[in-house]
Amino acid sequence: MTEPNHNEDWSLHAYADGEIAGSEGRALDERLAEDPEARAKVEAWRRQKAWLKEAFDPVLDEPVPAQIKAALRHRRGFTLSPWAIAAALALLIIGAGAGWFANLQMSAPQAKQFADLAIEAHEIYTHENRHAVEVAASDGDHLTTWLSKRIGQKLVVPDLTARGYTFMGGRLLAAGAQPAAQLMYEDQAKRRITIFVAANQTNKETAFLVTQKDNVTACYWLDGPLGFVIAGETGREDIVSLAHLVYQSFEM
């Protein structure tokens, strides 16, 4: 019984599982009517099927646990595991402009979505000491070329030294289903701010918008082909004036 029988009648399995229809199915109906042994097999398999359903179907009526619902709401896209990078590469190959991809975008307004993602990424990576950035500022040309290629738009590194912030470097993020760049800056007091940039896949543009989460303030906007978020543990006015600087850098 445990060894597969080479003379096994596969069509009986397929019949029991509804894989066979039409004239072939009718032929099997007729055969089963005259073959009690085959009929018994099919009935036994169908009984197993019914038992399995009886044993596990009650799960369908259970409420979905909160942890799973939370996983659905919460977006944990910020990793640099190989598949995240593969995802970004796959996107490039498929072409960011492909229409089907746009269909998979979440319906939430993209600007706010970017802001939420950027704040999460800010919180994760600004607390890193040795691995705060993936490519350091010393390798700045390579960094901008690389990230521009991934995002599909020309990126620049805004100069924020006038405001006391030194550029540290940047990294590629998987922002849900699309690549995004994070640029990190630090002032003399080791306070860090981040700029998040991703392709704007809507046709919309927005004004500067401000949001706050925990003690992170973020200013975000959609402008032409790109969406921006600048985030830091600083006040609203500070962030908005930095946002102006970033905005101007990209206007040039």
Binding site: I68, A71, R75, R76, T79, W83, A90, F101, A177
Partner: peptide, 15 residues
């Protein structure tokens, strides 16, 4: 299921 949901959201472009 939780792991699956997380991975599916991130990999949704592969669907």
């Amino acid at each position: 299921v939780q792991d699956c949901v997380e991975r599916a959201l991130v990999k949704s472009h592969l669907y």
